[in-house]
Simulated scan of single mutants.
Amino acid sequence: MFTRIEDFIAEWEKEAELTDRVLSALTDMSLRQAVISGRRTLGDLAWHLVTSVHYMSTLGLEFEGAELGASTPESAEQIASEYRRINAELLRAMKAQWSDDRLGDTIAIMGEEYRNGDSLQYSVMHQAHHRGQMTVLMRQAGLLPPDIYGPTYEGWVEKGMTPLA
Rank of each mutant, 00 (worst) to 15 (best):
L68V: 12
L26V: 05
T51L: 00
L18D: 08
S52K: 08
A25K: 14
E113M: 12
P163F: 02
A76I: 09
M29D: 15
R92I: 03
G160S: 08
E112A: 14
T3C: 02
D44I: 04
P73T: 03
G60C: 05
Y153K: 10
I148H: 00
L91Q: 10
Q127I: 03
S24T: 15
T51P: 04
A108L: 10
S52I: 04
R102K: 13
Y149N: 15
R115L: 10
S30D: 05
L68T: 13
A16I: 03
E62D: 11
S57M: 10
K14L: 12
L61S: 02
R139H: 06
V136G: 00
S99Y: 00
L26C: 06
R40Y: 11
I107P: 00
H126K: 01
Y149K: 01
E64K: 15
I109T: 11
E6M: 07
D44M: 13
R139Y: 06
L137Q: 05
E112D: 11
T27M: 01
T135Q: 00
Q121Y: 14
L144Q: 14
G104Y: 04
A10I: 00
Q78I: 10
F2H: 05
Q121V: 15
A16K: 01
T152S: 09
Q121I: 12
F8Y: 15
V136W: 05
D44P: 05
D100G: 15
D20V: 09
W98I: 07
H54T: 11
Q121E: 14
G150Q: 03
G111Y: 02
